[in-house]
Design a protein around this nucleic acid. Structure first.
Lengths: 211, 211
DNA sequence: TATTGACTAGAATATTATTCTAAAATAGAA
DNA sequence: TTCTATTTTAGAATAATATTCTAGTCAATA
């Protein structure tokens, strides 16, 4: 019937090679500027091979995206759920994000700097689904902290905006080479700031020094 | 020598028509999916005419972007500089942004949802220059507030992240139809949150102006 | 009216994404 | 092994579409 699938038959490695080549090309010269010919040469695959693995250039771009986001998200959620204390969880979240970006600049450039590409429409559903799954688990974690009074009760969308927003904006600046603060300092500063605006009343905020 | 320019000779209106048509097409079906033929039909211009006004599809996309960002930024800076009190300034900034988005959904989708498109490389310089100019004036305003102790002294990049980030993230959710909070409430919530993490030590509350 | 230069038209061309046909490789069955 | 079915690869052929080119039109002056 099908193939044994326990094995990397070389077909998988070719697929990977094409994705890697595509990532490199897109990252270096941009999506529109990259021709299938470029990817073909760089990956040493043939036209037919590329189109056997990927329906179109657009879908190839989408697969590249998914490949990266999968890696990014995998550790993210465990980093969060590994924390019991709200303040630590938030810090872990921000820390994981920025460090991942620092260590995966090329992927980050693709995932974050150029997010929401129109030609991603193909993957839109898959991406949305991943976000949703991640969102649900994160939501659960945050809900617990809100119930315990550690975090201020805020609408979901505002919550997301306050945590993700600064991270993403800093990421953007970092990837453009516009940031001067180091990643470690940024984690510190952003986590502190996030805490300041998310902390529940009783979580001894502002007033004293702390830490 | 050139043209009398007191009159809109129809050439300018044609240019505008092409930009409008392009915006509509890009917004509805996406950049890659939009062919020059689509734009030609929608704008009722000829191929030659389009290429007379714009060097390429990429440059057309860039001009569309610049057209929008110009409108967006024009009021933004005056909204900020019109405020003396830090807290009010921040609120004005956030308020202007979200309201502009609400009233210019199509443009916003183009400017913010799909920002940093690769094929914007053409305009990259022009955009960067606009951002820089805006940035300088905003920086000046914030620097004053920091000196007066109204705002906490933070690195420029962190500052930008904390104000712009949440705005942009909420914008993204709004444009995707993922937000449930109304724009007005979001302005309120985000401004409050921003203030909480940016306010200087002595700025207890109550807007004791002065300076 | 004639001249000049910006503007428009649409056919012609060039580029490049995609399809197609057939050959090579691979995995399992005999 | 050899045979057979299936997957994968190759590269030429095709199709789609961005861009260029040539020949005009028009609008403003002299």
């Amino acid at each position: 019937m099908k193939r044994p699938k326990g094995k990397h038959t070389g077909t998988e490695s070719r697929r990977k090679a094409i994705i890697q080549a595509a990532l490199a090309c897109f990252s270096e010269i941009g999506f529109s500027e990259t021709s299938m010919e470029d990817i073909r040469k760089r990956s040493k695959a043939s036209t037919g091979s590329i189109y056997h693995h990927f329906k179109s250039k657009e879908q190839l771009a989408a697969e590249v995206y998914l490949e990266g986001i999968r890696d990014y998200q995998s550790d993210l959620i465990s980093a969060l759920e590994g924390q019991q204390v709200a303040k630590e969880g938030i810090r872990a979240l921000i820390g994981h994000h920025l460090k991942w970006v620092e260590h995966n600049v090329e992927w980050s450039r693709y995932l974050f700097q150029k997010r929401h590409w129109v030609f991603m429409s193909t993957a839109e559903d898959a991406i949305a689904e991943m976000d949703r799954q991640l969102g649900r688990r994160a939501e659960k974690w945050f809900a617990r902290c809100i119930r315990s009074g550690e975090l201020r009760p805020l609408p979901e969308d505002i919550f997301v905006s306050l945590i993700l927003g600064p991270c993403m904006e800093f990421t953007r600046q970092f990837l453009f080479g516009l940031s001067r603060t180091t990643i470690d300092d940024a984690v510190q500063a952003l986590a502190e700031a996030a805490w300041r605006c998310l902390a529940g009343k009783q979580s001894g905020q502002a007033g004293g020094s702390g830490s």
